[in-house]
Design a binder for these strands. Structure first.
Length: 638
RNA sequence: GCCGAUGUGGCUCAGUGGCAGAGCAGCUGAUUCGUAAUCAGCAGGUCGGCGGUUCAAAUCCGCCCAUCGGCUCCA
């Protein structure tokens, strides 16, 4: 008997000599699963989801990421084959599976348009219908090179040249289409059921903007038509949460042609900004921060001193004042350094935490602007912390905690990256290593999970980056903690130590929201516009049933107004249903309906946007309820 | 910046060479209404901008601007 250990921890016994196919069949019955892929030695055989590596068998359902990846990768080959059939002179580059599907990069004299999608999909259908076996072939490096050279597929030869000298090179063949590929794949093209071409994009070969730009086709595939439909529906739903759409509908902000990348905040958007800032100030006061404000325009000499002139110039805006050269600040730090230098400092003041909610301008390339997520003028909730070297870990950990307090307040899940030394940077290798190690140590001591993001640090130091997701699961960097040994050096910052001598302080830059603009964008999508009451631009709307109750409605309005509740009185000449619909679409937390009944017993009928009708209560009762909700910044009462 | 697509009233969109349209929003009037759209009327556009082709351009061509989806870059 043969004992095989499975991923679920169970051992199962099989006859010696049983084929994996039979094991898969057996599993298929046991699990009553409709998943149908088996992976063995890189070749997917038919049945249940089984992978073996080193004699260990693991099973997967088709919904498992690995199986789905294989499935999509095969779909990607089918798409490439279809494209090569339709436009034979097309060269193929790479075509991996990605999070929500797959893409393939092509170099073709034919310019693809969305009109081609139907044609390509039809050709794919033919390939699927023909159910060509997918065969793995192993070549030596030389054989593989010769093979692709003869085909003129120079992207493939370039890839092979990058592989290890002695590597066995695998090709996967389906009918007349052969692709360089590590595999694995489905056993034949007929296994692919549901797929759809999604969009076109340009993409540089190997992600380098100096290289040839290729045409990328994004597509997706699912084992079932219904799963594909679900995905398409989800995309439609996500579009409804888009902060650009909601920003317009809810009157939060606008972006105009007159100022590309420079958002205008409207009254309702300002309420959210101001509430965020208020909350920020409260928490920072508790955490021992002071607040400053530094100028937006400062002279060239300062930016030369800070290193921005050399390392950041292409992102800066410049201006001239009385024949002197000035720049609009892209970061708050140099101003913060100058403030530090206004006094002599003692080690006794440390850690010294100085915050600044500062407006910065960065010249971003035109093609990267994206609603509030990526703009050219934004407000960073910055702070610089000056400290002794042995306070670093403790301070970083305190910032990690502070960020957690904020993100929890909004119910965010976040992921963390440690970004290391970029190509364009200042300072010695040793300093970088020391700084990077400190950040890693703090993360480890907090037990945080994080990924290394190589080369993505700021030019003056490594950083811990916090990423939040938008409605389409695109991630955006918000919070960041940056350890900086450079600025104190450049600005010759010092403090008097216990020994009476001058020393160099260590500095952290950190933001929590990151950019208030971006944060509002993320918040809008996160809540789908239904902001928690403490943030909601309008917290309650009073709706008289008809004109007869306008006076009574006015008295309620005044009561709420006097309690600083953001409320509106809707005395338009419309029916109740119309006004309720309007209030719901504006995502106002509470609608207060007043009519004959309410006027008679001095009450209001309260309707919550999610909970529906809450019944009748007095104005005082409502005020007490909503005031607690606002005071405690309740995230949800749904 | 690069690749592709798009741009028509405040918003969403029809209109593919021959008189610029609809719905919603707005305004006026009627209605006085009980939990997601009451009825009628009125008003509103240099069709993103500039140039070209044509008897005639929202429509065809060129350049530019902005937006959208990506790439690169980044809070």
């Amino acid at each position: 008997m043969l004992t095989i250990t499975f991923k679920d921890g169970n051992n199962r016994e099989y006859e010696e000599g049983i084929s994996l196919y039979q094991i898969a069949q057996d599993l298929s019955k046991k699990l009553a699963s409709n998943a149908v892929v088996a992976l063995f030695n890189d070749v997917l055989t038919d049945m249940n989801a089984v992978i073996t590596t080193d004699g260990k068998v693991e099973f997967f359902t088709i919904d498992d990421p690995i199986a789905l990846e294989v499935y999509r990768h095969t779909t990607s080959h089918i798409m490439a084959q279809a494209v090569k059939r339709l436009w034979p002179e097309t060269l193929v580059a790479i075509g991996p599976a990605i999070d929500k599907g797959f893409y393939y990069d092509f170099d073709s004299s034919h310019t693809f348009t969305p009109d081609d999608f139907k044609l390509i999909e039809e050709e794919m259908q033919k390939i699927i219908k023909a159910d060509y076996p997918i065969v793995r072939k192993e070549y030596s490096r030389e054989e593989a090179l010769t093979y692709f050279k003869n085909l003129g597929e120079h992207y493939k030869t370039e890839l092979i040249e990058g592989l290890d000298e002695n590597a066995v090179i695998s090709l996967y063949e389906q009918e007349d289409f052969v692709d360089l590929c590590a595999g694995p794949h489905l056993p034949s093209t007929g296994r692919v059921k549901a797929y759809k071409l999604m969009s076109l994009a340009g993409a540089y070969w190997r992600g380098n903007e100096n290289n040839q730009m290729l045409q990328r086709i994004y597509a997706t595939s699912y084992p079932k038509k219904s799963a594909l439909d679900d995905y398409i529906n989800k995309l439609e739903e996500a579009k409804k949460r888009d902060h650009r759409k909601l920003g317009r509908e809810l009157g939060l902000f606008v972006l105009l042609e007159e100022g590309p990348g420079f958002p205008f905040f409207l009254p309702k958007g300002m309420v959210i900004r101001n509430e965020l800032e208020r909350y920020w100030r409260e928490e920072h006061r508790k955490a021992g921060y002071d607040e400053i404000r530094t100028p937006i325009i400062l002279n060239q000499q300062l930016w030369e001193q800070s290193g921005h002139w050399d390392h950041y110039q292409e992102n800066m805006y410049f201006t001239e004042i009385d024949e002197g050269s000035y720049a609009v600040k892209p970061m708050n730090c140099p101003g913060g350094m100058l403030v530090y230098k206004q006094n002599a400092h003692s080690y006794r003041e440390f850690p010294m935490r100085v915050g600044e909610i500062g407006l910065v301008h960065r010249h971003e390339k035109s093609g990267v602007l994206h609603g509030l997520m990526r703009v050219r003028a934004f407000t960073q909730d910055d702070a610089h912390i000056f400290m002794l070297p042995d306070q670093v870990i403790t301070e970083i950990k305190a910032v990690i905690d502070l960020i957690d307090i904020f993100y929890r307040k909004f119910g965010f899940r976040y992921s963390v990256e440690l970004s290391t030394k970029p190509e364009k940077s200042m300072g010695s290798e040793e300093m970088w290593n020391k700084a990077t190690d400190s950040l890693a140590q703090a993360l480890n001591e907090k037990g945080m999970e994080y990924q290394i993001n190589p080369g993505d640090g700021a030019f003056y130091g490594p950083k811990i980056d916090y990423h939040l997701k938008d409605s389409l699961d695109r991630t955006w960097q918000c919070g960041t903690i940056q350890l900086d040994f450079q600025m104190p050096e450049k600005f010759d910052l010092n403090y008097i130590g216990e020994d009476g001598n001058k020393h160099r302080p260590v500095m952290i830059h950190r933001v929590i929201y990151g950019s208030i603009e971006r944060f509002i964008g993320i918040l809008t999508e996160h809540f789908a516009g239904a902001f928690p009451t403490w943030l909601a631009p309008v917290q309650a709307k009073i709706i008289p049933v008809s004109e007869h109750y306008h006076d009574y409605a006015k008295t309620i309005y005044e009561k709420l107004f006097n309690e600083n509740i953001r409320c509106e009185l809707d005395n338009r000449n419309e029916k109740l249903g119309y006004k309720i619909r309007d209030g719901q679409m504006q995502k106002i937390p509470y609608l207060l309906i007043v009519g004959a009944k309410e006027e008679e017993n001095n009450s209001i009928a309260v309707r919550h946007r999610k909970l529906g009708e809450l019944g009748s209560m007095t104005g005082e009762e409502f005020i007490s309820r909503i005031s607690i909700e606002i005071r405690d910044r309740v995230l949800t009462n749904e």
